[in-house]
Amino acid sequence: MDKKTETKRIIIFLILVFALQSVPFLFYKFIYGGDGTDNLYIVLGTFSMFTPALAHILTRIITKEGWKDSLLGTNFRKAWKWYFIGAASILVFTFIGQILLFAEFFPEYTAKEFFEGENRIAGLIVTFLNTGAFAISGFLICMGEEYGWRGYLFPKLEKVTNIPVAILITGIVWGVWHYPNGIFLDDASAFAEMLLNQTLSCILICPFFVLLTKKSGSIYPASVAHSINNSFAAFILTNSSIMQDAEKLESAMNRSSTFVTYINLILIAVISTALLIYFKKKENISQ
């Protein structure tokens, strides 16, 4: 299929995804008059996670391109190791990121003091198992995003441009798509900072999800990894003794992000991009 047709499809997809995302939130803020603290906002937030998948489905219907290469098969027999690599790797990198963060932000605590309290080991095991079960069950919600970004946008961009540029554009679109998270922030600079941090994080983690999707031929490994990343993102803080102490917690909340918060994401981006380039070269040689 020619690049012009693929570009048109990408544009239709982008219009749909941002329209589906924006209309409910803008209606909620400016017409309904919500302030982001009620249950309707949470319901809208959950619905918005399915807008990329919805945009994918609508784009295929509008452009009449059929359902080939929609990446909905599990391919579990051939690609089972990518399910486990995805889940294990993202867990390891998420914890590396949190450990680095707390080593920088809370050097005054030892690990024992960080987790002090009764039955801490049992409590941590229970919370880890519960969070893992949530993450596995929650992959359906993350599939709502992955089916759009890695299931449609990236494959289309890959046909129009090369892999690194396709990853960059997918990451930027994915990051900007998160803008409703900041529509209730007080000033423009806070909104800009939130959007910049979000977009940077999305750009850095995008190569990893792209790698999982390409090697497995399915969106499920990336969906599971995405869900694990979301579920365990604040595991260490929310299970530390800091959460029980209001003064310590306020002090924690006031410490701002630094470069350290991105080290694990940069690592994962570099490794994933290198692997993608390696596999692409191997594919070209075998052809």
Partner: peptide, 15 residues
């Protein structure tokens, strides 16, 4: 604590 761990591990056992 043991009961709590068993309840938490139940999803994995079921899988």
């Amino acid at each position: 604590a043991g009961l709590a761990i068993v309840i938490a591990a139940f999803p994995y056992i079921a899988g």
